[in-house]
Design a protein around this nucleic acid. Structure first.
Lengths: 185, 185
DNA sequence: TGTTCGGTTCAAAATGAATTGAACAGGGGG
DNA sequence: CCCCCTGTTCAATTCATTTTGAACCGAACA
């Protein structure tokens, strides 16, 4: 992994994800940049490209978009749009604003970053930290299987692991509150 | 892993990664648990399983291990061991302690978690945050392509994005120092 | 009832990363 | 000089995940 991160600041994968359609070129450029931004960020968090792209295109539009809008502006299949939107809705990243009346649902970004982050942290980190806690306990007992001298080495290592573990756990709430600061909306 | 614990969601992936060999059963169990622990954690960070397993087995041994030791205790190919060890060395996660004299190199964990974490943070987050900064600037300009009313909406969103971005950047050093606390060795 | 519109589902295909394994050093011995 | 003995390399394979696309569903409407 580390080995593939050598290259410096490359053109950053020209996202051929946004379709020109008939809109003004500069609008399309804006959308493309936005999609790019989110696709990049998502990569970091292990979120599928298509999902990030959908969020990006919705985020880039000053007005709510319909399913059809999204489908027409992105070069991804209807199925992906459907699944992606579902995921984003579940997670609270987009919300539907019921259109005029009979027309289709419209989507706009639910700009509560805070929630997104929190949810992410909770799901991934906290879960892992919990299960880690249990495993550490088991390990501490398992060390008994070794001869005294070796046991000492292992116990020391385990202690270190525990400390790190605890610090991380302690960091979480701090991060949460910190990211919440000045959360305008 | 006879852990039929409470949690409904986690199958806990019985790591069939550690080979019994001829060592005592409880030692093997200990190693398996350790490998498991690291494989789990690694998953979170997007590190390949085999690499995590190697680190785990080295970490679980009170004495340094040779290439052959590692290969014989884990059910992964020689090629993977070689590559994995290289990565771990590069990253400073293991270090070689020259054996007696003519014999093969031995590996032991370089238990500087701090360094590992720092390196990780630097490579992934900081990089992304940097490139994000640039993109945000471009986006702010791109918003000019829209009509005044729409522009306002977009600018507001962009501002929010920026704020989040900044807060995250500000959080990094905090996290670093925090994780450093009490780093005994 | 038949037809179209908006969207969902899911098996199959594509993608991309990790893993394998066989070919290949190099370096001591003998 | 030849032959192990260790470890590395890298193209080919496997594996997991994402994406596709066609079948499908239900609701509105004629």
């Amino acid at each position: 992994m580390a080995s593939s991160v050598i290259h410096s600041t490359l053109p950053s994968t020209t996202t051929a994800l946004v379709l020109p359609g008939d809109r003004p070129a500069d609008v399309v450029a804006f959308e493309a940049a936005m999609v790019d931004f989110f696709v990049d960020a998502a990569e970091l968090l292990g979120v599928p490209k298509s999902v990030a792209a959908i969020y990006g295109i919705v985020f880039a539009s000053p007005v709510p978009l319909s399913f059809a809008d999204i489908e027409s502006r992105l070069d991804i299949s209807k199925g992906s749009v459907s699944q992606g939107l579902r995921m984003l809705r579940e997670v609270g990243a987009v919300k539907e604003v019921s259109a005029a009346s009979d027309k289709a649902e419209l989507f706009e970004p639910d700009v509560e970053m805070r929630k997104l982050i929190e949810r992410f942290i909770e799901q991934r980190l906290q879960r892992q930290l919990e299960s880690g806690k249990g495993k550490l306990k088991v390990l501490a007992q398992g060390a008994a299987a070794y001869a005294p001298a070796e046991q000492k080495v292992l116990q020391q290592r385990l202690k270190k692991l525990s400390r790190w573990h605890d610090r991380t756990r302690a960091l979480l709430p701090i991060a949460k509150t910190f990211l919440k600061l000045g959360a305008g909306s």
